[in-house]
């Protein structure tokens, strides 16, 4: 099997400070990879470089496009990259407000990506939006409400529906459970796990919450000060941490 995403030697500097340095990995279809580390360790910088929001200073991000096979998304033309980011890619922001149009109804939010790729039949767009609201457990009769009227958890689920409606193959998630209370987090994780399995999604999840990666991720990368200090299977890294920082991270989790 060939990888879906291949990152080689990604580095990003903010002046003399390091964002992330020399990060390389392969992501295979259907695989979920977690990136953990403390605040400021370069997780989000790395994710933004991978998703094309930031231009890395060095390195290549190869993505297996449907039409032309492996393509370097860093060197790709902007129209092509933007096309990717609304078809084969999805990006779930930590704050739902960053990923949603707050002035547009829930149905419009879900439908936007469909319309962006050329859907021009209102009935079909509406049916698909209804279906997706149902799949992310939002009551269908709230389709015409604006996201501002939704709770934090519902906004996050709406953001997920909006992103997955075009059937992407790769999802970038930046702290998808951040700022939600634990019971809502659990439901969201359960939902995400179901969707990832069902749609055979590949995903890259950035988080500082080890429980999230324990539940969702197949593989794990631990970052510190812009460098990957440890990588491997999730269970292996969490149960038998080798690097000092990973040991600290694992032992810092409160046991209830």
């Amino acid at each position: 099997m060939s990888p879906l995403l291949q990152a080689t030697d990604i580095s990003k500097f903010y002046g003399s400070r390091v964002g992330c340095q020399n990060v390389s990995f392969d992501l295979y279809p259907g695989e979920v990879m977690g990136i953990v580390g403390e605040s400021g360790s370069g997780k989000t910088t790395l994710l933004n470089c991978l998703a094309g929001h930031l231009k890395p200073d060095t390195g290549a991000v190869l993505f297996d496009t449907r039409a032309d096979g492996m393509q370097d998304t860093v060197k790709m033309s902007e129209p092509a990259r933007r096309m990717l980011s609304r078809t084969d890619w999805a990006f779930v922001h930590q704050h739902a407000r960053d990923g949603l149009r707050m002035g547009v109804s829930a149905g419009g939010n879900v439908g936007e990506r469909l319309m962006a790729v050329g859907a021009r039949n209102y009935g079909q767009i509406r049916a698909k939006a209804t279906d997706w609201l149902d799949r992310v457990e939002i009551q269908v009769d709230r389709i015409d409400d604006r996201p501002a009227a939704f709770s934090g958890g519902m906004q996050q689920r709406l953001q997920i529906a909006r992103n997955l409606v075009t059937g992407p193959r790769l999802v970038f998630m930046d702290e998808p459970t951040g700022g939600l209370d634990v019971s809502v987090q659990a439901r969201l994780l359960d939902l995400l796990r179901g969707l990832v399995r069902e749609m055979e999604l590949s995903a890259i999840i950035v988080t500082h919450d080890l429980a999230v990666v324990r539940l969702l991720a197949d593989r794990l990368m631990v970052m510190k000060d812009g460098h990957v200090v440890e990588a491997g299977l999730t269970d292996q890294v969490l149960d038998d941490p080798q690097h000092g920082y990973t040991q600290l991270l694992v032992s810092s989790v409160l046991q209830v």
């Binding site: 902007e78 129209p79 933007r82 609304r86 149009r101 547009v104 109804s105 149905g107 419009g108 439908g111 936007e112 990506r113 319309m115 962006a116 790729v117 050329g118 021009r120 209102y122 767009i125 509406r126 389709i143 015409d144």
Partner: peptide, 18 residues
């Protein structure tokens, strides 16, 4: 520049839904 006009239809969608 990139002919990304999906958003224009979001406005029309909102009209119909409301």
């Amino acid at each position: 520049a990139l002919e990304e006009y999906g958003l224009m239809h979001v406005k029309l969608y909102e009209d119909i839904s409301q």
